[in-house]
Write a protein that binds this DNA or RNA. Structure first.
Length: 865
RNA sequence: GGGCAACUAGCUCAGUUGGUUAGAGCGCUUCGUUUACACCGAAGAGGUCGUAGGUUCGAAUCCUACGUUGCCCACCA
């Protein structure tokens, strides 16, 4: 009975249901008077998302923080939600419709959006259900979606405010255009990949010009050289006329610092419409802009005879034409950095387009200052540097997307004057204005574009609490305490939340940013679904239990550091969970079967030899009881301290070590000899509390065996106390002696069944004999106290010499120890002889070294008697 | 081109402001079904902390170079 391994199946789901039904995920329903508020905003996963280990890591850490602070008695809110994920969701639904042969252009915007909402209705809870299965104790009654009416209201309010302040503007500028997604992208959504290609050297009159994109040469509007380059000084400011693949052309020669004289030939063709650097030069020198690549990835009408060709075709044609005219000097293999769409992976075309932009500098400045002033702290700290660097070099943010799924830009254009060929000033408003302020017209149409998904997520911490309304939640829970996220969305999201929150909520969005690492596969590669190298957390949870998954994602990891995960690791923590389960079974058995034996054996008064056990403390408790209670209190202090400092791994590791190696390996074994079920139960329940944030299911399940009416989730966190040093000293001697005897037995190949007489002698003999029973059983020995040392000892520990009764003395195993001791003593003596050391080192350190030397010498003497 | 991180036992990783004879898990070796647990217990082997210098009484820990790997940022055509 009760001998079965822990089976999480059938345990986790009812427990989660009970938690949720209790209402305690909601801070308003928590019992007791809770003054201090603690809140975390959950980074909203994409509605299209499927739970991966990255989510699981974040959810686990956030849940640890949430459960910990709830147990501390704080008014704790963890607010969940999902993100509409503009591009990702639109692509997904488009593909879905395509399988039915429907294109979104056929059905139109309104019908398409109905399909997307229907999809969201159907599958949008998948990700939140998965988050529930991880045990997340977030307040589902406050769940939000970025396109909820109140969040949409927040987005509109934010946009209109920025618009009216002149921080949002519309303009024709060079942007990143994904020809596949058919939308503009922000700089962040573009990933540069080193791509092997060619460097073409083309004859431009007197110059040789190197380029990787010869097809853009039909869009050239200048040639540029470095102002300091003596080779070309005489050309600067002049116009040159030269032969091209399509006839003769005249271009000005400008001087610009952007040109690197060492690269290529030091002469650059300038194509302002299709290259960021060229665009910048074009602005500086007021160059004409000639767009030759269109949004459809084909050459435009301005490209002359190459018009309507695909970009790649145009390139081949131009090269052929140049060759025919002997204008191509040479081709070199060359690897250059080519922009790709972060979403779909196709090549991004830089081109000029009319888009909405957010002026970022006025927002970035306070966002920088807040972190500099430590109003926001990053854990680990090094990410502040990365944040600063990015913030300082940030450029205006292209916020409009040519998508249908998202927040439609709340800007209205008057149509009436348009007929007369005039344009009125656009108006930013939630609804169409009644009357045009410019012309009195009454017909308006709304801007067709939507906002970048990250515009709405940037408002997340406060829009979910009710902003722009002045709600109680906003007042109570904002700023949030911690933002827990991965480093890969530091710029996308964290930086923008800081800017927006300072702008609109007039305070920081969170006080600490905790950054976890990415989960890598066991070969150290980023997990990838397409490559099949990923571990899917849900089947793993099914197999090993959710608690084991949670532990494997937190223990043995460091903040900000990517870490590897393997199934073996998860199995290891499953074993630990099983250990906890079995300790629970043992505790039950002790309580039920041995209630009469709870009083410990009578104690002899201890002399302790100075600094021993505090006499009054613990009354009738045994040395083992005192030891475990002492260690237990150290554990409470450590776990609390680690959690306060976001050292989740250290906290979990301390628990793992204590529960397995102190509680199970020693104290439980001693309970079989010297039961004290009161202490046992107390220590165990304290462990359940400390472990609960990490492994909520098993701890709650075990807790409710003895506390049917209460929930561990809302029990009080154990209190930290000052540690009295030395309270464990006497028991440590017993432990050492047992280990030493076991060691000797193993070396001498004494089988475990065989109980052997062990002779002990020395000053501590009397004290140790008090716990004779423990030593004899755990070391499988019969202790024989002896007046004096009768032969060479097999060991010296804890103030006694001991030797085993063996037909022949075999002391070989001691040789190594003796030689180690000798070496150590020599090193210590040298150290202490060094006057520089004794002079400079703190006295505590010196004294400690002296003490260690004395101990080693004494031990050596005992062993060589 | 700039920057960041990692390099510690066969493998995966700790090592909290420099101070015990550098730790854990897995794996390995030997032994063991002792009434919580074989998803277990006991004992053990295994590391000159990437390399070379430097600072210091003292360095895995601080500084400087270098090497290897990974990542981020960047307008080098």
């Amino acid at each position: 009975m009760g001998n079965e391994a822990y089976n999480h199946l059938g345990i986790e789901e009812p427990i989660y249901k009970r938690w949720e039904a209790s209402g305690y995920f909601n801070p308003d329903k928590l019992p007791g008077r809770r003054k201090k508020a603690f809140s975390i905003s959950m980074p909203p996963p994409n509605v299209t998302g499927e739970l991966h280990l990255g989510h699981a890591t974040g959810i686990t850490i956030q849940d640890i923080l949430t459960r910990y602070h709830r147990m501390l008695g704080e008014k704790t809110l963890w607010l969940p939600g999902t993100d509409h994920a503009g591009i990702a969701t639109q692509i997904l639904v488009e593909r879905l419709l395509q399988t039915e042969g429907i294109s979104r252009h056929e059905i139109g915007r309104e019908t398409f959006l109905k399909h997307v909402w229907a999809w969201k209705q159907k599958y949008g809870t998948r990700i939140t259900d998965q988050i529930r299965s991880l045990g997340a104790s977030c307040d589902w009654s406050r769940e939000h979606f970025t396109m909820d009416p109140n969040l949409t209201q927040a987005v509109q309010k934010a946009f209109i405010t920025l618009f009216n302040e002149g921080l949002i503007y519309r303009g024709e500028r060079l942007i990143n255009w994904c020809t596949r997604c058919q939308t503009a992208l922000s700089d962040l959504e573009v990933k540069h990949k080193d791509t092997p290609g060619h460097l073409y050297y083309i004859k431009y009159g007197p110059f040789s010009v190197a380029t990787t994109r010869p097809e853009t040469k039909v869009g050239d509007t200048a040639l540029a050289v470095n102002p300091k380059d003596p080779r070309y000084k005489k050309y600067v400011g002049k116009k040159i006329t030269f032969e091209t693949e399509s006839g003769s052309l005249t271009l000005p020669v400008i001087a610009d610092r952007l040109v690197d004289p060492k690269f290529g030939t030091g002469v650059v063709k300038v194509t302002p419409a299709h290259d960021p650097a060229d665009w910048e030069m074009g602005e500086r020198h007021k160059l004409p802009i000639k767009q030759v690549v269109g949004e459809d990835n084909r050459m435009t009408g301005s490209a002359g005879k190459y018009a309507s060709l695909l970009v790649s075709q145009a390139r081949d044609r131009i090269i052929a034409d140049l060759q025919a005219k002997h204008l191509l000097i040479k081709i070199e293999p060359y690897t250059s950095s080519v922009p790709h769409c972060d979403r779909c992976g196709s090549i991004v075309q830089p081109l000029v387009s009319k888009q909405w932009f957010l002026k970022i500098a006025p927002l970035a400045k306070p966002a920088l200052a807040a972190v500099k002033a430590d109003k926001i702290k990053f854990v680990p700290e090094r990410f502040e540097k990365i944040y600063f660097h990015w913030m300082k070099n940030i450029r205006d943010w292209c916020i409009s997307r040519q998508l249908w799924w998202g927040h439609q830009i709340p800007v209205w254009y008057c149509q009436d004057n348009l007929k007369k060929g005039k344009t009125c000033a656009p108006v930013a408003a939630t609804l169409a204005p009644n009357k045009c302020q410019t012309c009195g017209g009454t017909h308006f149409i709304q801007d067709q574009d939507t906002l970048d998904t990250w515009f709405s997520s940037g408002l997340w911490t406060f829009s979910t609490l009710g902003w722009p309304n002045k709600t109680k939640d906003l007042k109570t829970f904002h700023p949030t305490a911690v933002m827990e996220t991965a480093w890969d969305i530091l710029f996308f999201w964290v930086a923008r939340m800081i800017m927006f929150s300072l702008k609109f909520a007039h305070e920081v969005p969170f006080k600490t940013v905790f950054i976890h690492g990415l989960v890598l596969d066991k070969d150290g590669k980023k997990m990838s679904k397409s490559k099949g190298t990923g571990i899917d957390p849900l089947p793993m949870a099914e197999k090993y239990g959710t608690d084991a998954i949670r532990l494997s994602l937190v223990l043995g990891t460091t903040a900000g550091q990517d870490f590897r995960l393997s199934e073996e690791k998860i199995a290891g923590y499953r074993n630990f969970i099983n250990k906890v389960w079995n300790i629970g079974n043992f505790v039950d058995r002790q309580i039920n079967s041995a209630p009469a034996r709870t009083s410990p054996p009578a104690r002899l008064p201890r002399n302790g030899g100075g600094g021993g056990v505090p006499a009054g403390r613990g009354g009738g408790s045994s040395l083992a009881d005192q030891w475990i209670l002492h260690k237990q209190q150290i554990l409470v202090n450590q776990v609390t301290e680690h959690l306060n400092k976001f050292r989740f791994s250290d906290a979990g590791q301390a628990l793992y070590d204590f529960i397995w190696h102190d509680l199970a390996d020693w104290y439980v074994e001693i309970q079989k000899i010297q039961p004290n079920s009161k202490v046992l139960l107390g220590v165990f329940q304290s462990c359940l509390k400390l472990l609960h944030p990490f492994a909520p299911f098993i701890t709650e399940s075990l807790w409710q065996r003895h506390n049917k009416k209460t929930q561990l989730m809302i029990s009080d966190w154990p209190k930290t106390k000052k540690i009295k040093p030395g309270a464990d000293k006497e028991f440590l001697k017993i432990q050492k002696l047992i280990i030493a005897i076991r060691n000797s037995r193993a070396v001498h190949k004494i089988t475990p069944q065989e109980k052997v007489p062990v002779y002990i002698t020395g000053s501590a003999t009397k004290a140790l004999m008090v716990d004779k029973g423990i030593i004899e059983i755990l070391a499988r020995a019969i202790l024989v106290p002896t007046a004096k040392l009768e032969r060479k000892a097999h060991g010296h520990e804890a103030g006694v010499n001991f030797w085993l009764e063996l037909p022949e003395a075999s002391l070989e195993h001691l040789h190594k120890e003796v030689s180690n001791l000798k070496n150590y003593i020599k090193a210590q003596e040298n150290k202490l002889k060094n006057s520089q050391f004794t002079k400079n080192a703190p006295t505590v350190v010196v004294d400690n070294e002296k003490k260690k030397l004395a101990e080693a010498k004494f031990k050596l003497k005992q062993l060589t008697k």
